[in-house]
């Protein structure tokens, strides 16, 4: 049993090896982008809207409300980044009920890639919002002596973010796999349901923490 979907090779095209992580990532991307495209082709601006549009609007509105609640700022700038993080992780975890599917979030490469994006996005948003020096001031507050601690904190929280998501999803997979070998009836199903919930919670936690980090980078008062 492989610990990571990276190790499952689907197709090999010369030097390039397409593992399960990439393939299922594309699947998730395809579902998200294709679904969105299908639904948003015919958007109604009137009072009568389709149920799919209603679903998307509910999702987008909820995400925007969450971002606004956390950052206290206009969510428009953060919505694509944070929203995509949440939707990707959420759908990737949700699809784990499909037999044969390996959640890409169970790969440390994926979670590290997402975290790397957050790690880059935080200073980008911060600089865009407060200016280069305004953002850098964050690291020497309250005193310049805090600079090393702030840097360590920046890196450690990023690593923690990646490990947390990876660990949760991977552990869930392994737990279900072990349970299947020990008690093949009933209990794995319950655990899988639990795993689904954990997957959604992790998606929420990941997105929320990313928002918090960005908010701390863009906020004037944040330490």
């Amino acid at each position: 049993m492989e610990l990571s979907p990276d190790q499952i090779t689907i197709v090999e095209l010369g030097p390039v090896t397409l593992n399960a992580t990439l393939v299922f990532t594309w699947l998730v991307m395809g579902i998200l982008a294709g679904g969105s495209w299908l639904i948003t082709r015919n958007l109604s601006t009137g009072t009568e809207i389709s149920r799919w549009q209603n679903l998307l609007e509910a999702i987008v509105t909820t995400i925007r409300d969450q971002i606004r609640a956390i950052t206290g700022q206009d969510p428009s700038d953060y919505l694509p980044f944070i929203g995509t993080l949440f939707l990707f992780i959420s759908l990737a975890n949700l699809l784990s009920v499909v037999p044969g599917y390996e959640p890409p979030t169970g790969s440390l490469s994926t979670t590290a890639a997402l975290t790397a994006c957050v790690f880059v996005a935080v200073p980008l948003y911060g600089v865009a919002k407060r200016g280069f020096f305004g953002y850098l001031k964050n690291y020497i507050e309250p005193t310049p002596f805090m600079l090393p601690f702030n840097l360590v904190s920046e890196i450690s929280r990023t690593v923690a973010l990646a490990i947390r998501l990876f660990g949760n999803i991977m552990s869930g997979r392994i737990l279900v796999g072990i349970m299947l070998s020990i008690i093949p009836l009933l209990l794995p199903t319950v655990l899988q349901v639990l795993e689904l919930i954990v997957g959604q919670i992790q998606a929420y936690i990941f997105a929320t923490l990313a928002t918090v980090y960005i908010a701390s980078g863009t906020s004037e008062t944040a330490a």
Binding site: M29, A33, W37, T40, L43, V60, T61, L79, G83
Partner: peptide, 14 residues
């Protein structure tokens, strides 16, 4: 992609 197909149209519509 999502910015193009999801957020923008939905937010605009709303």
């Amino acid at each position: 992609l999502l910015r193009m197909f999801l957020y923008k149209p939905i937010v605009n519509a709303m």
